[in-house]
Computed example of a mutant assay.
Amino acid sequence: MKVVEVDLEDRSYPIYIGQGLLNRGELLRKHVPSKRVLVVTNETIAPLYLDRAQLMS
């Protein structure tokens, strides 16, 4: 896995790049304190990944 840090001072965040990241829900939970998030996708990507992303909770 590779991590790219986006430096925006108090709004900084990491971007994780690699395989199998949808199986690592702890990465998202580490940065998003809420149990609910909004996922923006499209008709090409949603069928491939959206169900798996919903299981990360």
Rank of each mutant, 00 (worst) to 15 (best):
Y13A: 01
I17N: 04
K30S: 11
L28H: 08
A46Q: 11
E26Q: 09
V32I: 15
I45W: 12
I45E: 10
L28G: 05
L27I: 02
T44P: 05
V32R: 10
A46N: 08
Q19P: 10
K35E: 11
K35R: 13
G20E: 06
V32G: 01
Y13W: 02
V3R: 07
K30Y: 05
G18M: 09
L50I: 04
V3Y: 00
T44K: 12
D7Q: 14
R29G: 01
P33N: 13
V6C: 10
S12K: 12
A53F: 06
S34N: 09
V39A: 04
G20H: 05
L55Q: 08
V32M: 10
V6T: 13
I17M: 05
S12P: 07
L8R: 15
T44Y: 15
S57N: 13
R24S: 05
D51Y: 01
L38I: 15
Y13L: 00
L22K: 07
R29A: 06
A53L: 08
R52V: 00
R36K: 15
I17K: 04
V37T: 07
G20R: 11
V4D: 11
L21R: 10
Y49Q: 06
N23Y: 15
R29Y: 06
R29P: 00
G20C: 11
R29V: 01
L50S: 01
K2P: 01
H31D: 07
N23I: 02
P14Y: 06
D10Q: 14
G25L: 04
D51L: 04
N23E: 14
Y49D: 05
M56A: 00
V37D: 01
E26I: 14
G20P: 01
N23H: 15
A53D: 05
L48D: 06
L48V: 10
E9N: 07
S34Y: 03
I17S: 03
S57P: 08
R52A: 13
R11S: 04
D7C: 06
L22T: 05
P47Q: 03
P47R: 09
Q19T: 15
V4Q: 12
L48T: 01
E26L: 06
V6S: 02
